[in-house]
């Protein structure tokens, strides 16, 4: 417990929309040095990219359920677009589809951020708070990775030149 308190106190605070003050590797190294092996393994199970429903208890179970619902919403949005019908969504708003892909992604990330913020209320110096910190760090890092110039270069590298083509 004291190690967890020390760890939480030593971590810089995260602000949505700002550059991450710590990298994921730095965070994991710090966590590994302060947590027991079991707690560190538990922390490692949680990632926004690979959330398995039921991998947590209490609030964390709620979070994994929300992410599962989000994935279901994404699937429904894709199917509805394919079938040219109105999507039936659980969490996301239908108005999302009117936004451009960046605005849409930012809206989804904002929703995830808000859900995580709700989850950490009253969970001071607990594993829940640490896991929420990790997931928020993932979100902040992801938002920070959105760069117009770099994005244009990535697109250009795919569409220019045409490689592996045969006429």
């Amino acid at each position: 417990m004291s190690n967890l308190v020390y760890l939480m106190c030593s971590l810089p605070s995260l602000t949505y929309g700002e550059a991450p003050p710590i990298t994921m590797d730095e965070f994991l190294n710090e966590a590994q040095s302060q947590l027991s092996k079991k707690s560190f393994l538990k922390l490692g199970q949680f990632s926004l990219q690979e959330v398995n429903a039921g991998s947590g208890k209490g609030k964390l179970k709620r979070f994994t359920k929300l992410i599962e619902d989000l994935h279901n919403d994404l699937s429904e949005l894709r199917t509805a677009k394919w079938q040219q019908r109105e999507p039936e969504l659980i969490n996301l708003s239908k108005s999302l589809m009117e936004l451009d892909p960046l605005e849409r992604e930012m809206a989804i990330i904002q929703w995830e951020w808000d859900e995580l913020t709700d989850m950490e209320v009253g969970a001071n110096f607990t594993m829940t708070e640490l896991i929420v910190y990790k997931l928020k760090l993932e979100l902040v890092s992801r938002v920070y990775s959105f760069d117009k110039t770099h994005g244009a270069k990535v697109l250009d590298s795919v569409v220019n030149p045409i490689q592996n083509s045969e006429v």
């Binding site: 605005e103 990775s145 770099h150």
Partner: peptide, 17 residues
């Protein structure tokens, strides 16, 4: 307006197509 997503650190665009 949405080119920034191509640099998303969650997705490797070159593997998509």
């Amino acid at each position: 307006p949405w080119l920034a997503v191509f640099s998303d650190n969650w997705v490797d665009v070159s593997q998509l197509i």
